[in-house]
Every structure is written in C-alpha cells, then in structure tokens.
C-alpha cells in the first residue's frame, strides 16, 4: 500500500492540510452560514405560525 510507504508521507501530509484548510474555509464561509440562516428563518416562521394559531 503506497499510503504506508514513507516516501509518500510528505505528500500525504501536505494534501491533508490543504484539503482540511479548504474544507474549513468553504464550510464556514458558504455552507454553514446558509444552515444558520435556514434555522433562524425556521424558528421565526414557527413562532409566527404559533401566533397565528392562537
């Protein structure tokens, strides 16, 4: 298995860091804020519908 061959270790570590950094950036910048916005609107709407049911 090439993953366990020490010759490739530097490459693997480098790409792991790159991928993790990229994921953290994309998630925190684009994906997770959308979810927060969705959750907030869902909470707001459910409060509104509670009021209209009363």
């Amino acid at each position: 298995m090439p993953q366990l061959v020490p010759f490739y270790f530097v490459n693997e570590i480098t790409f792991t860091f790159v991928i993790i950094t990229l994921m953290v950036y994309i998630l925190s910048k684009y994906i997770l804020p959308r979810f927060v916005r969705l959750f907030l609107s869902r909470t707001f709407i459910s409060k509104l519908s509670d009021i209209s049911k009363k």
Partner: peptide, 26 residues
C-alpha cells in the same frame, strides 16, 4: 422570509462572526 424579516440576516452574520453554528432554541 429573510427579505420580510431583516433581523434574520443580522442574527446570522452575528452568529457566524462569533463562530457559532447552532441557533439558540432550535
């Protein structure tokens, strides 16, 4: 919904800037 209630966007940016991804009470 966000267009009708601007406070949603405000709250979102506030929570995101604090690094909090969960909405209180959700």
């Amino acid at each position: 919904v966000a267009a009708a209630e601007p406070s949603i966007d405000e709250k979102t940016s506030k929570l995101v800037s604090k690094g909090r991804w969960s909405v209180p009470g959700y």
